[in-house]
Design a protein around this nucleic acid. Sequence first.
DNA 1: TAGCACATGTAATAAGTTACATGATTTT
DNA 2: AAAATCATGTAACTTATTACATGTGCTA
Lengths: 204, 204
Amino acid sequence: MSSSRNDAGRTTTAEALLGLLSLGPMSGYAMRQLMDWSTGNFWQESYGQIYPTLKRLGEEGLVELEASTDGEGGERTRREGRTGRESKVYRLTETGRARLDAWLRSPSRPQVARNELLLKIFFSGLVPVEVVRGQVRAFCEGQERDLALYAAIEARLRSEAANDKRMPLWLMTLRYGQVESRAMLSWAEEALGMCDAMDEGRAV
Amino acid sequence: MSSSRNDAGRTTTAEALLGLLSLGPMSGYAMRQLMDWSTGNFWQESYGQIYPTLKRLGEEGLVELEASTDGEGGERTRREGRTGRESKVYRLTETGRARLDAWLRSPSRPQVARNELLLKIFFSGLVPVEVVRGQVRAFCEGQERDLALYAAIEARLRSEAANDKRMPLWLMTLRYGQVESRAMLSWAEEALGMCDAMDEGRAV
DNA sequence: TAGCACATGTAATAAGTTACATGATTTT
DNA sequence: AAAATCATGTAACTTATTACATGTGCTA
């Protein structure tokens, strides 16, 4: 009832990390890797956020270090076949799991996403219509890249998580991106048509 | 070549304000009001950003205060029929216009928008499927509200800007929101179907 | 005269990225 | 011995929101 954020509702970085740990114990480094090909397209965190947040969550008792497998109660573990420095593997505590559960049931605040493309288009009265076309075309390329990425993620998900009962949830988030990208491509086509109309002085 | 951001590419708040001033001279207060019913759905700024940024832009010579109409070269003006404190009306300088022009032609960095709804769904393996349904339904309500808002903005735009030659640009940004919201509603329907499948133990 | 709408501004705080510093192990 | 990969962590900085403080003129 004191230090943690999200009292009056903020942060979400903590919840993202708790969510990742609900998939199984892992290190801060592993969290970043995992996000790359799972939540990467709607949620990312930098190490600069992950490590301090993990430390704070530990102090609040929401996560704890896994006991080392190689005796002595050391705090770092080395996973089989791994090279490099030893990692600190965290796991959820009961309190942490309860916190995650509460968050999953709480209402999601709508976030007004800033869109630089739309901002530019809105103020493009000063520049030739061709500039707008260029912006829209570049946007399309980005959407095509996103769609390719979604296909790759889906393939990886289907091979690595095969018949996990949570698959429908994961596919749901993937479908969101696919539906969005396709919609945006159809908008772009319409927008290019409006650009033509502007050039020809037609009404819209 | 020195102090302003966006050298190596950041900020955009400055550009948003320059863009607003390209529509005509106005005060910081008016900028916020205008954004509410124009760019409001893809770009917003708080006073805490607007006033300091305006000050900085003035120091950099990108904007300047309009001369007061009531003699003496005073810096504040009162618009006709207006009540309350006098406002500081800014206008673009030539340098400011050039800066805006360059920005309009520059590539738009893609921003990985965080999506709290998808994050929750992704980690909803711990909670009953009904919780996911609740989240999706609340999301739908938000989209419906957005669609209503777009309709209101379009009406206002068509009445207040009637036959402005930039209308197609403004409608383009509005269409983006409409296309997006409708796509998201169709995704939501599909998602609810997937929830049913999960309950019934069907594959997806 | 109280309250509202208009209007500007600052301070405190929050949230996030990037660059940097370090360390350990394996491969070339 | 250098380089790559795995891994943790901190400091500096940027960006943004919120709350607060203040001022002015009109209207109930």
